[in-house]
Amino acid sequence: MVISKKGSALTAVVHLTVLFLVVMWTIPTAGLFISSIRDKDQLSTSGWWTALSTSEQRLVERAASPESQTQENGLWVIRGNVLGDSEGEVTRFGSSSLKPEDFAAGETAELRRGIRLQVMANGDYEISSETEMQGRRGQRIFYTAEVPPRFTLDNYREVLGAEGLGKSFINSLTVTIPATIIPILIAAFAAYALAWMKFPGRGLLIAAVVGLLVVPLQMSLIPLLKSYNVIGEFFGVGAKTYVGIWLAHTGFGLPLAIYLLRNYIAGLPGEIIESARVDGASDFDIFRKIILPLSFPALASFAIFQFLWVWNDLLIAMVFLGNNEDQLVMTGQLRELLGSRGGNWEILTASAFITIIIPLCVFFGLQRYLVRGLLAGSVK
């Protein structure tokens, strides 16, 4: 009975811990999605957790030009609404950026040259003067408004309607698919050799593979690029091509692939392989007819990791492909949409959800093999 109570308590702790981790991972994702469908003005002034509440915004609107003024009761008048088609309630207003909240809604502000400005709570404004107003540009009106929550798909429309996005999507697939398949093919052969073929130095090779797992990617980028340029000149292959980025992603992905597949293949029943050898099967036949079908969970696990890594990559794409419009990948294209100073940062949230559509399809298509492949070889 004591053991049962301890087991129940431990199970409850495990469940609560898992629930806590799920919530901690879900909250940022939910915040990202909510931000992606919010109005960009509200997104820039308040956090996503305030999306359902009224927000206070300090805005500026230019009134109609003096060309639209009319004469009423001996006064020259310009009328309009600072809110336009938007909903909200003006609380304060001003005529300069230094004093944007000088007057409450409904009050009359005395401007230069005898011009008066009045802004009502519903956004209606009236500019009046005893003499005809001159100039080509309208008066700037600074105002503070209580704005109800607004949700829109404009951020998604801006991203999806961007020029070159379709081409960059094809470029990302062109980079990602070969960069996922090539290391899987190479690593599968190497993993079988390290698991079941006996040859001198096998232990050192396994140790080298494990050691390469901790080598920082950034340390090897420039030497690898220089080596590729030298080899490319020798064979007549130009720089900034897809071949270079395929080879780069293959090199960076091979250590994890070999380590993962080797652990799985080494855990397969040896009796099956010995029986095949007794029947006269070669190592290639064993690999092709026995190892590959049984290793599909591990192959799928690595395919998920490699696909996600390559699809979301920007650094390697910039180094090996550059910023050429014809070869710009999705992450590079979305970075260009932000502008040189990140002025359009509000579309980042919509861009994030657009870029994860393909990885999500890959993940959910292969997720049942993920845990099996990761745990392979951990127990006997």
Results as ranks from 00 to 15, higher is better:
123 G>Q: 09
123 G>E: 05
123 G>S: 09
123 G>V: 03
123 G>N: 05
124 D>R: 13
124 D>Y: 08
124 D>I: 07
125 Y>V: 07
125 Y>G: 02
126 E>H: 05
126 E>Q: 13
126 E>L: 10
127 I>Y: 11
127 I>M: 09
127 I>R: 04
127 I>L: 13
127 I>F: 11
128 S>L: 01
128 S>I: 06
128 S>D: 05
129 S>A: 15
129 S>Y: 12
129 S>I: 03
129 S>V: 02
129 S>K: 08
130 E>H: 10
131 T>Y: 09
131 T>V: 12
131 T>W: 12
131 T>E: 14
131 T>S: 14
131 T>D: 12
131 T>P: 00
132 E>Y: 12
132 E>Q: 15
132 E>C: 04
132 E>K: 15
133 M>L: 13
133 M>R: 15
134 Q>F: 10
134 Q>G: 03
134 Q>V: 11
134 Q>I: 11
135 G>Q: 07
135 G>N: 04
135 G>K: 11
135 G>R: 10
135 G>D: 07
136 R>P: 00
136 R>M: 09
136 R>A: 12
136 R>F: 11
137 R>W: 14
137 R>T: 14
137 R>G: 03
138 G>E: 06
138 G>V: 05
139 Q>A: 01
139 Q>P: 06
139 Q>S: 09
139 Q>Y: 14
140 R>G: 01
140 R>Y: 14
140 R>K: 15
140 R>M: 14
140 R>D: 14
140 R>H: 13
141 I>G: 04
141 I>M: 02
141 I>C: 07
141 I>V: 08
142 F>K: 04
142 F>L: 04
144 T>E: 11
144 T>N: 03
144 T>D: 05
145 A>T: 15
145 A>M: 11
146 E>Q: 15
146 E>A: 15
146 E>Y: 14
147 V>F: 05
147 V>W: 07
147 V>N: 00
148 P>I: 04
148 P>S: 09
148 P>L: 07
148 P>H: 04
148 P>K: 09
148 P>N: 10
149 P>H: 10
149 P>A: 01
149 P>I: 08
149 P>F: 08
149 P>G: 02
150 R>A: 13
150 R>S: 11
151 F>K: 07
151 F>Q: 05
151 F>N: 04
151 F>T: 04
152 T>R: 02
152 T>I: 02
153 L>F: 15
153 L>W: 14
153 L>C: 05
153 L>V: 12
153 L>E: 08
153 L>M: 15
154 D>E: 12
154 D>L: 09
154 D>H: 09
155 N>T: 10
155 N>V: 01
155 N>A: 15
156 Y>V: 00
156 Y>P: 00
157 R>T: 05
157 R>C: 00
157 R>Q: 11
157 R>D: 07
158 E>D: 03
158 E>L: 01
158 E>A: 09
159 V>A: 06
159 V>F: 05
159 V>P: 00
160 L>K: 03
160 L>N: 01
160 L>Y: 04
160 L>D: 00
161 G>A: 03
161 G>K: 06
161 G>T: 06
161 G>E: 08
162 A>L: 01
162 A>Q: 10
162 A>D: 02
163 E>C: 01
163 E>H: 12
163 E>S: 11
